[in-house]
Design a protein around this nucleic acid. Structure first.
Lengths: 229, 229
DNA sequence: TTAACAAGTGTTAATATTACACTTCCAAAG
DNA sequence: CTTTGGAAGTGTAATATTAACACTTGTTAA
């Protein structure tokens, strides 16, 4: 038995990104309309190919950046898809990544550069290749993950109300949560700082603003604390 | 923007297998001693390269089969590792898979064919490349997964005692479980059939044998029932 | 002044989890 | 035949977690 790599088959390795977004109301996914063959005109996830000196994580970040301009967003590897005919042009393996970002900030530019659009999760079109399968796997993983790590805080403004946070969780988990139970649960985690300030935009009474306490969070993460909602 | 795949870099795609085993007592992992460069003489996971017309799942099964002779064993994809220098010979991405098998059956042959050996999880040597990282990720995933799906039944003889089942879970989770609580939990899942027969090998009194009720299990799986231990 | 609207707030019941110790059965030894 | 040793088997009480549920407060605008 010898170490001869030269006989082995090489393949194209793509990276496809499932980009979820939250707009204070709805969970959405960012799709692009292909202006190239194959499947021109059809909707698809944003993707690209892994480069020679690039790690998969970097490729995923690069692709996210290309489309949205965003940097330093954590992307999680989802799964590697390898059906022989998944891409009709050539054998291509695709490692998929997902993330969830704040829609508001990066809305305008990208729609101009690419034919990109946010779709409500309840209204996703038919996608090319195996992209619907990827998306389905991603949403399931996101839901499981959300219950384990408080993933959500990056998606909200620095200061936010309990109501906003609850809506975020409701959007991800796709179910209504009880207001009081939610607040108790969040408070019991002890990773938020309640401010004196109030947000007056959504009610006459106003609702208290909170800040995420990253220091406390990082300390607790060591002990693998988690949130079940 | 055009659909020109020809400019893209191709890479070698390896598949490495983390093969856990259970021998009625201990959780072990199957490693091979490399008789080829690089890192000749060092311990490593069993691996191979993805072939042109092969799906990743198939490659993983093929590698398992080559080493152990086993067929039709479910292997779960773990993660794709892509550090640029992870393999010093050539840029290689590795998608890792793991499974857990019954050691007893396939012990002898493989040790002859390959320089393979079972290592207790508490006594794993330094492995080549990033294989220790893979193994670490695999054991964590196995533990999480074990609590979600009753993965273990395939690993036991067709008929087994509660004690054996408990030992299996203890080995995977690496912690002692309470006998009564364990039995209650398992019984509440209602997926075992208690037989009239007893196993007399481990005590004078003998202990009842059980069978896994796959039919009931499959019905329940639809509802995503799970086991927390 | 009052009507409308979201914010805020605790308690109880149900369920799930954990901790814990003695009896039973049989074979082998005396 | 009696005793002893060793694993199997068995239930309950305490605690912790989760789920269900409705009224009061504060403010603005009509």
């Amino acid at each position: 038995m010898l170490n001869d790599y030269s006989k082995e088959d090489k393949v194209l390795l793509a990276v496809d990104c499932i980009i979820f977004g939250f707009d204070n109301d709805d969970l959405k996914v960012l799709l692009i309309q292909r202006n190239f063959e194959p499947e021109k005109g059809k909707w698809s996830l944003m993707g690209g190919f892994l480069k020679k000196n690039e790690v998969l994580d970097e490729a995923a970040s690069r692709i996210l950046n290309t489309l949205t301009g965003m940097n330093e967003i954590y992307m999680e590897q989802l799964y590697s898809f390898s059906e022989v005919d998944r891409d009709p042009v050539e054998r291509t393996i695709s490692t998929s990544y997902y993330t969830i970002i704040n829609i508001e900030k990066y809305n305008e530019e990208l729609i101009e550069n690419y034919n990109a659009r946010w779709f409500s999760m309840s209204n996703v079109p038919h996608l090319i290749f195996d992209h619907n399968i990827m998306l389905d796997k991603a949403i399931k993983r996101l839901r499981r993950r959300t219950s384990i790590n408080p993933i959500g805080f990056e998606l909200l403004p620095e200061m936010f109300t309990m109501r906003q946070l609850q809506k975020l969780y409701e959007a991800i988990l796709d179910k209504k949560l009880d207001k009081r139970n939610f607040i108790n649960k969040i408070n019991s985690m002890d990773i938020l700082i309640k401010l004196d300030e109030k947000d007056m935009t959504s009610s006459t009474k106003g609702s208290y603003l909170y800040k995420f306490d990253r220091e406390k969070y990082d300390k607790k993460k060591v002990n693998n604390f988690y949130l079940k909602l």
